[in-house]
Amino acid sequence: MSRLRAARRRTILIHVACVAVTLFMGLPIYLIALAALSSRESLNRFPLSLLPTDVSTETMRVFLDSTGVIGGFQNSVEVGLISLALSLALGVPAGYAVARYAFRGREPYQLFLLLTRALPIVVLSVPLARVFLATGLYDTTYAVALLHTALALPTTVLITSAIFVAVPVEHEEAAMVFGASAPRAFARVVLPQALPGIAAAAIFTFVTSWNEVLGAAVLTLNRRTLPAQVLSTLADSPLAFRFAGGFALVVPALVFIAFMRRYLLNMWGTTIR
């Protein structure tokens, strides 16, 4: 009997702990949403209401109408898409090579990837800004996209190589035996199977780009991404603006994670070796 009770108590404890952690992780998101969706007037009241009694889109609307916000949003999307396309174009072939070929230099290459992944390339934005100034790329979305591609590329290679490893070589060999050339076998047999994983890698790149702020702030003046815009106007903007900005940056995160739930462990977990 007491054994059963102990097991029961254990289950309850686990649940309590889970709920507590969930509150810690979830409550701040609730609060920023609450703040961003309150009217200006109610944000000026003190103490703030903890329940959504006064929902209004006013704060968000004012934020979106501020100078540079819509533009920043557009720039963010643009930078994210360019980075995504570039890092797939460069990373997928490399990931395939790492997965399939035992070439000399494979180990050093992987080490090189880990190194570039482990070092804070963002802080190189400062010298990079000079390089871009010299090459005429400064203050363009391309400049930021190049940096973000460099940030996401090692991970893209690691993720895609893990995905290609999971597609048995025999599948490809079978296609070649039955008359497909190597590129055709890749397109007909490997790519369709790897597509979900490649999409995950793409989204990873987009999230990385969406979140990066230092490089984006250093490499641009007028073509700022949304985070860079929020950061640069942080000091002179009212609280309501900051809350709205925080919320605008958090919402995509909720969506990304919801979409990528199945691949989380692959993206951030197993392949980070």
């Binding site: 048995p168 025999e170 060999e173 079978a174 035996v177 008359g179 047999v189 369709p192 199977q193």
Partner: peptide, 19 residues
């Protein structure tokens, strides 16, 4: 290359394409 040899093959793992 394999595709020009005019042969066919049954693989140990079958290599049936799942998609």
């Amino acid at each position: 290359p394999a595709r020009l040899r005019g042969l066919s093959m049954v693989f140990q793992s079958y290599a049936i394409w799942p998609h």
